[in-house]
Design a protein around this nucleic acid. Structure first.
Lengths: 199, 199
DNA sequence: CGGAGATCTTGACGTTGACAAGATGTGGTT
DNA sequence: AACCACATCTTGTCAACGTCAAGATCTCCG
């Protein structure tokens, strides 16, 4: 048993998550986090060096968790749309992590561990897009980008409360949204689709 | 001529925009903004009451500008996809405003003027979606949501530098992405689309 | 058992956001 | 023209914060 805690680093990360959940990632204070963990105001310095360091660690943890979730659904053989659902579910069920992940300026963007975790998540989305059942979408390199943008934006809107899912069912809403992403089509082609669409 | 300036409120907003562009919306300091405007450190208080007040004013300004841009393209008779392009163009050409607009926790979300401006922009997107050329998409209430999520996410990714547009042409990239948004289709229907898609 | 290094505390410094009180300019009323 | 109510801006102050330096305490290996 080290000093005061079994694992102060972990305890500080948890306290920070608590604080983020309560006051948002911007209003968080290092001294408050230390207080929650029951240690002196300078204790976090040794573990994270910096306020930015602590938030970067949190962000890295978040991206790693997201990548793990994505990897699990990909292993389950799910298609690209379902990867998007996983993304949205992660965001809404880990709001504190997600808030830190998407907070620009609070995080050291060039941190190698953070970049690695981000790249892993991005890579999973990209390979998922390349296996899109529609060949035109699968071969289009912007499919991954469009999918990412779609689920990222939906997550943000959900967390801001700008949208509330019918019946509180986030997964169904996410599914109905990600299903909208097809290959690039012109307006006349869309007409064909809609002509084919009927009960 | 009032006191020191012709319009200190405007001068402070401009100084704040400068500061946001340089250091991001999180690192901004009221005292620094006052310094840039050449006034005392407490001058902003009277105009905005609060640090949050100043950023809320900036966000309101941003949403108003975005709504104006959207209204202009809607008046020009452009379709829903082009509204999305306008959204992305606004974000990338007013990065400081957009950063404040999407910064949660920095802004007083219940501000009436801010909400009004946000609702105006949202309403424009919604009526644009209802006029989608594809009837199945036009009648689907989630079209506006999906479109918003798509362009919002793309804007974020562009500003974070996670994506750089080919040839620096943001409009073309945005257009190719928004074109991906069709009516909800199943996989077999997608096959029909791709069968019809050829030179 | 002894010392080296990791871990945590204590103390200090400059900066910040917010508040209070006072100074200064402005416009309207008589 | 004199006055006064009010808006505007300044000065002074305070607690809280992030960061750094120096010292205390714990751990473990030789």
């Amino acid at each position: 048993m080290p000093y005061h805690h079994g694992d102060l680093r972990r305890a500080l990360l948890d306290s920070a998550l608590e604080a983020v959940a309560e006051h948002g990632p911007v209003a968080i204070s290092l001294r408050d986090v230390a207080r929650r963990a029951g240690v002196s105001h300078a204790a976090p310095t040794h573990h994270f060096g910096d306020k930015t360091g602590l938030l970067t660690a949190l962000a890295t943890e978040g991206w790693t968790g997201l990548a793990d979730d994505l990897a699990r659904t990909a292993d389950r053989g799910q298609d690209f749309a379902e990867l998007g659902v996983t993304y949205v579910l992660f965001a809404t069920s880990h709001p504190a992590h997600f808030a830190v992940m998407r907070a620009p300026g609070l995080v050291r963007g060039d941190d190698p561990e953070l970049s690695a975790a981000q790249n892993r998540a991005g890579e999973l989305l990209r390979t998922g897009a390349a296996q899109h059942r529609n060949p035109a979408a699968a071969s289009d390199p912007t499919t991954a980008l469009a999918g990412w943008a779609l689920v990222h934006g939906l997550s943000v809107l959900l967390l801001e409360g700008a949208v509330d899912p019918p019946g509180g069912n986030v997964a169904d809403l996410a599914r109905s949204i990600t299903k909208r992403l097809g290959p690039a089509v012109d307006n006349d082609e869309m007409a064909v689709v809609s002509a084919n669409k009927q009960p």
